[in-house]
Design a protein around this nucleic acid. Sequence first.
RNA 1: GCCGGCGUGGCUCAAUUGGCAGAGCAGCCGCCUUGUAAGCGGCAGGUUAGGGGUUCAAGUCCCCUCGCCGGCUCCA
Length: 657
Amino acid sequence: MSAVPELRITLAGSERAVAAGTTAGQALEADGRTVIAARVNGEPRDLAHELADGDVVEPITIDSDEGRAILRHSTAHIMAQAVQELFPEAKLGIGPPIENGFYYDFDVAEPFTPDDLKRIEKKMQEIVKQGQRFARRPVTDEAARTELAGEPYKLELIGLKGGASEAAEGAGVEVGAGELTIYDNLHPRTGELCWKDLCRGPHLPTTKVVPAFKLMRSAAAYWRGSEKNPQLQRIYGTAWESKDALKAYLTFLEEAEKRDHRRLGAELDLFSFPDEIGSGLAVFHPKGGVIRRAMEDYSRRRHEEAGYEFVYTPHATKGRLFEKSGHLDWYADGMYPPMQLDEGQDYYLKPMNCPMHNLIFGSRGRSYRELPLRLFEFGTVYRYEKSGVVHGLTRARGFTQDDAHIYCTPEQMPGELDSLLTFVLDLLRDYGLDDFYLELSTRDPEKSIGSDEIWEEATQILREAAEKQGLELVLDPGGAAFYGPKISVQARDAIGRTWQMSTIQVDFNLPERFDLEYQASDGSRQRPVMIHRALFGSIERFFAVLLEHYAGAFPAWLAPVQVVGIPITDEHVPYLERVAEKLRAEGIRVEIDSSDDRMQKKIRNAQKQKVPFMLLAGDEDAGKAAVSFRYRDGSQNNGVPIDEAVAEIVATVRERR
RNA sequence: GCCGGCGUGGCUCAAUUGGCAGAGCAGCCGCCUUGUAAGCGGCAGGUUAGGGGUUCAAGUCCCCUCGCCGGCUCCA
């Protein structure tokens, strides 16, 4: 036996002996390009991390989620170095990896210009080319304070160490819970210190192994996420394991831009936001109106079948109602300011439907036999969204909720929540969304009312209902509204983006505040449990999500124009009109293009309008009482007998395919 | 609300960096009569987001307001 002490480590599931002083990189025989870091006993570490006896070592590859996060974090450092070389007065904020990229915040006198970003990107290329080494160095708090005396924001983070998660989102990458470390960027040959940053790591072995990155944009961001703090200048970038992966990401962004509902809404003549009306207030044009009505009609039918009763309530009300509900206490900032009527009486536009529904419940004595009582309304509400957050149909100032409030006994609640969740998911699937996960939002003790027991119980019932669906369940601690816990349904769209859709909330507050009661079978008066639920959330927003999900190519049952008849020459218009009559008799939305455009142009127009069915007819078809299909995907089916063509279209629409 | 960018016919974009506001598409009127993504010709359309200022002269420079875009904060 040699005198060199040995360590026993676990590598790829099997035990091995290695010499003392072996690094994680050596043990893994990492090339530093594909395997760029290690997980040691579950913790991510640099490849240069020296192993200890009993360590369990696993590789982290650059194309894994964890690997990309390390790559992006390292790229953020490179960017910060570039910024400080070009702008020596820039002070560092934080610079964490985020989904699809990274950012770094800087305190600079002047905001960055697009031109500055180009210069920074160029400087980053130089740093990457140099191949500077990332070297980890533990420091004491005291030493860190001395070294970083010129970086006030970093000093603040050192002071918050341990409470980093509260310091700011992303601050955890700067200061971990344990000892402080500084990462030095060292020149590959001279070993000279090029730059350093307070950072928990781990990092890539060198800057050279950054395969592809791009700076995306700059914007202001509040220091530590609070609007009370000064704004720093944030630069967003992205970095990927290969040039192809970067390119794929940029292509994805382009695709998302093409699907933007604001763009498609104008292109397809669905809706608009006239300046004359005001920010965040949409008008639906006839084609958008058709889609919206088809969505609403189907939803109405399903709700009817599921035992909901339909109510209507006004858009404005005296302030007293929202004092009673508590909305004025909690959400006054988000409400339109009041108008004074009737000798100083304050009236508000309603931001919520629930108080009105409660008044309906309370309008007469209620029996346990009526429960669960399910009140449904397409209720239009108005919320004064701050000017900077208004965003097309997804964040509007006026919108319509498919809102329902369910009043039931405590015993009925578990069953009701269970069937409700099934109902919600089924209905969303009918609209073409089928990839879901659930989120359970729990109490924020700072911002809530009610006893611990009642929260605990309601949360548990919601959790059980959620788990029963067999879907992924994500926790959202502290995410609940002040009056009760909630489940939300998150849907992934056709290009993998997630949207919050339906919400189901238990409410302990309102039945109390409105003193709601029913008479139980034993004659006693009992307080009902109240469940709020919206399926689309907002119809406008759901419309936008579907528009983006389908990229404007709605399934036939929702398409504003389901069929366009295209005559080969003008002479075939009457023939197509007769076909159209048969379709209209079946409730199909059909138009005949009798403009003086050429047939090819008509096809192009229908194609651009994303019409599901084009029916062409010329002498060949007319001669055998047939039509020729051109489908949205460009494929054809020629010489189809009229009755068969009608049946095919009707079936597609009826079956909501 | 905060920071930055932007605003020219319905849409997409020009206009020598202060010197006569122009094109394509869409629209309207004709001609063409056509087999699976743009036939041809003509006509019409703008107080350059609105208001104020600088200047001999403003789409262009300055100020205010409105709106939009990208973020931050917020989102019952």
